[in-house]
Design a protein around this nucleic acid. Structure first.
Lengths: 69, 69
DNA sequence: GCTTTACGTAAAGTTTACTTTACTTTATAC
DNA sequence: GTATAAAGTAAAGTAAACTTTACGTAAAGC
């Protein structure tokens, strides 16, 4: 899932470390998120959208998985 | 996290079993979700909002955790 | 050239979302 | 009264989100 966390963070002039503290997650979590290593939990997605004053849909781009069924 | 999955499902006249198949998750997942046993992944949240033609914010009510820090 | 700041990687460990199986309950319908 | 459909519980297992620690790199400032 694509996301705009990095863009938003930078628009807010924050470091990864600052962001991680505000969201109460580890810096690793932010790094991995921005790198697209994994998807956030819905809790983290909500926290991010609140902080950046946007919707989850604005921040994360969902594309249907190619269901191999 | 509160959610309106049950309401939406019923509004769409679906059984838990039908919903689980459409979303490609187990029936247990739907039961537990509706019962509030755990929060959905952001993927599942997106799937649900797409199916019910609403936003994630419409379907799930986020309340800041009382951070014990 | 050393220090500090910001970003990055790797890997092992914990927590939680989700699956699977198996069995229970309630209601409807023949 | 038993068969079937829909909802539920419990518990053990797997997968993925997130943490923790420790170390690497590049740029900026002195």
């Amino acid at each position: 899932m694509k996301n705009y966390v990095r863009d938003k963070r930078m628009a807010f002039g924050m470091t990864q470390d600052e962001l991680s503290e505000k969201l109460d997650v580890s810096r690793q979590t932010i790094i991995s998120l921005e790198k697209g290593k994994y998807n956030p939990s819905i809790n983290l997605a909500f926290k991010l959208s609140r902080l950046f004053t946007c919707t989850i849909e604005d921040l994360f781009i969902y594309e249907e998985e190619d269901k191999d069924v």
